[in-house]
Write a protein that binds this DNA or RNA. Structure first.
Lengths: 345, 345
DNA sequence: GATGATTGGGAAAGCGCATTCCCATTGCCA
DNA sequence: TGGCAATGGGAATGCGCTTTCCCAATCATC
């Protein structure tokens, strides 16, 4: 990656390095117009592209913003990524991407890599967990983040604080009201559903999942309903599918119409997919609700009841965009939780 | 973003800068073990994180790989992004992300930004077009890429060469056999479908769309079928939706069972969504096929007939992963194009 | 034991740029 | 017209690191 340098431009234009720098890469001092033009011409002729690395080194600010997600192909994360990307664009910066497989150890590595690149800020979008096996990784991640912040870095975390991270400044959490929203969903579902509830949750210790479970149970309690049974499984489609298979028998063997709350949309889709070949129809034989309101899933039928989350705004906010509206969600009741004889849309 | 520097580490360890560099950041020369340990200890104590910018500057290789997509939240692109990300991970590099809104002018800017950051390579995933309005942008993009390649950059383009780019070396195109696959799809559809065909395409001049249209028509011709009517619309869900609305009347007014080929899955979903409230059922009243086999859409019902594309591999290949299998697609016939009285899955 | 071959640490020269000083001009006012 | 402030270009330094080159110490060889 050799390319022409500023000094080459300067030489061709017959000016000093300093002048060329001032003309080409915005400085407070503006050289005279005729000189400026000569420099610009020279730069053009040579196809000069400033070396951002060198600039970053010289003024110690890289214009980079790091983004850590579990899986960029997951629609939940890619929606957040879009928000981050937009914020970065506005701030005239670039985003560095890191997909970790979701383990804190990988995330720590990503953070270190971002720090090495002297990213001005970073956003961590993976869901936090307190599982025993992640303990060590969490501690290391927290330490790494802490160091990064102490060195002046800005970090935005989506959802829950990184476990064990001390509240340094520069450390910023985008709160997602998972618990209240899940409670709201439970309340609205309870208003029209008489039967029992089942929750399909992620592994215990996953904050996002646990919050939604807790909120949902609270909502049920507030509505005077007994607590729902909780089935723990993977936090993805496969997990939902598996849980759906396990539930199929039970649903077919009883005349009770169960309401199934999967803690995210993708899991809800998995549940539905597992139920379908077993002849369990939604919403006739059971109802299903999810969480997130993933855009790509909106044309799914029966339309999935869920909680809408402004994922893009969440990303934007985590990336430090000041004029993002505060994060709120909305319960969306759709066909998948309607009464058996509802309208046909 | 101040942090401790290598020279601080060297001083604390009582060695020279050179030695510290050699032990900490891999060199061919390995200092003695006792000295190495002293350096590592010092680095640990200071929380030293090497400045990747400075390293890049010194050895003129940034370890960066740029990725240009239209929209990172689009499942097509995010799948490719996942592949790129994995390849990058394997090569021990990081990916720089740029979402352009799809105009060549924006893409050019992204390329320039990557070049400024001295990315070792980059992949361009947006679909190429020859539309008149993009002419100028295309030319500029081509020039920018050309310059980048001349300076030793590697670029991988998905699908079609950038219009006007000279075949410099370092310039690498991942060919996607859109045309053959579309022909194959048409052939297989023609084998079981007696009625007419309609193609819902993107705007004229969009290579990906045009290729698929051409291939499909060819496939029909090979099967002795008359050419399909082509409806041009947006290359996204909204476009498909609009086309679907336009088609609804016609389908309802005739007893012919139309086979609709939308040039990508997302458009096919849009078509289906528009048809549904009009009472047009798939596959009873018409059949629908798409292209891409987007993962998130696989649970959609009726299951969408489509052409499977190994998007992740495509990304990996474009990112220069040598042991990616060659790109081939597969026609997937599913429920959406079955005979009216097919099995119920 | 003297000599050449090796090993391994250190000094220093950049990598490409921003920026602080410094100095030669120019313009202005008295 | 002399003196001063203001203007604007240039030389030089440093950002944090890699890498070449140099040199002292050790080793093997005859």
């Amino acid at each position: 990656m050799a390319a022409s340098t500023l000094s080459e431009v300067a030489r061709l234009a017959g000016v000093s390095l300093a002048t060329a720098s001032r003309v080409l890469n915005g400085s407070s001092r503006k050289p005279a117009e005729d000189i400026a033009e000569r420099v610009r011409d020279a730069a053009d002729k040579l196809g000069y592209v400033p070396n951002a690395q060198a600039q970053a080194l010289a003024k110690s600010s890289s214009g980079l913003i790091g983004l850590v997600v579990h899986d960029i192909a997951d629609p939940y994360f890619s929606a957040i990524a879009r928000g981050v990307q937009e914020a970065a664009r506005q701030q005239n910066r670039m985003v560095l991407l890191a997909s970790t497989s979701g383990t804190p150890a990988d995330e720590k590595q990503a953070v270190a890599a971002f720090a090495a690149r002297r990213a001005d800020s970073m956003v961590i979008a993976g869901s936090r967990s307190v599982r025993e096996e992640d303990k060590q990784g969490n501690a290391e991640l927290a330490a790494e983040l802490d160091r990064y912040c102490r060195n002046g870095g800005q970090v935005g975390v989506v959802g829950h604080p990184v476990v064990g991270a001390s509240a340094a400044d520069g450390y910023h959490v985008v709160e997602v009201p998972n618990e209240e929203l899940a409670a709201g969903l439970a309340g609205q579902l309870a208003a029209t559903h008489d039967g029992g509830f089942v929750i399909i949750a992620g592994p215990e210790g996953l904050y996002t999942s646990d919050d939604r479970v807790r909120g949902f149970q609270q909502g049920l309690a507030d509505a005077g309903r007994p607590a729902a049974e909780v089935i723990r499984t993977g936090f993805n489609r496969a997990g939902g599918f598996q849980a759906g298979q396990a539930l199929a028998e039970r649903i077919k063997g009883s005349k009770e119409r169960l309401c199934i709350f999967a803690v995210n949309d993708v899991m809800a889709i998995g549940v539905t997919a597992a139920l379908r070949p077993e002849g369990v129809w939604i919403p006739r034989d059971a109802t299903v609700a999810g969480f997130d309101d993933i855009e790509t899933l909106r044309d799914f039928r029966p339309a999935l009841s869920t909680v809408h989350l402004p994922l893009e705004d969440i990303g934007r906010l985590a990336a430090g965009d000041p004029d993002t509206p505060p994060i709120t969600g909305t319960v969306k009741l759709r066909r998948s939780t309607e009464a058996p004889v509802g309208p046909q849309l």
